[in-house]
């Protein structure tokens, strides 16, 4: 097992756990969305890493090159990035509305306000 060669995957794991931890541990709603973004980015890197073929070049047709990296995961990641952007946009829009309605974007403050209302 070539640890250094799997450097990409270690990065994936670190980012994934960092992002996940931020989502769970942070109380600020925008920071949660940041964590979510980091979490999703790690998955992108996972896909891209798996698409590299050792010795292959970038998947752009060119004369004289016979070995290309796999373009399919790149395409999948483009889709996933768009999905990620849409999710972030929606999440931020919700945060704006929540700020208007509650006056705060800290989870515990919002929770207290809801409890008092009940």
């Amino acid at each position: 097992m070539n640890t250094l060669g799997l450097y990409n995957y270690w990065v994936v794991i670190v980012l994934m756990m960092t992002g996940f931890y931020i989502v769970i541990a942070q109380g600020n709603l925008i920071k949660k969305i940041v964590g979510l973004s980091i979490f999703q980015t790690s998955v992108f890197i996972l896909y891209i890493s798996m698409s590299t073929v050792s010795g292959g070049s970038a998947p752009i047709l060119k004369e004289g090159i016979s070995l290309y990296s796999n373009p399919l995961p790149h395409v999948l990641i483009l889709t996933a990035i768009v999905v990620g952007i849409a999710t972030t946009a929606l999440g931020l829009a919700l945060v704006v509305r929540i700020k208007e309605a509650y006056g705060s974007i800290e989870e515990d403050v919002i929770h207290d306000k809801d409890e008092k209302e009940c």
Partner: peptide, 29 residues
């Protein structure tokens, strides 16, 4: 206004779920 918070919570959890599914599919691939 609780609907906003409910939607936000669903967004966070749902996206985590969907991302896990994405990882699963990636590993399958």
């Amino acid at each position: 206004r609780k609907a906003l918070i409910a939607s936000y919570q669903y967004l966070i959890m749902g996206t985590i779920g969907a991302t896990f599914i994405l990882i699963g599919i990636g590993l399958m691939y």
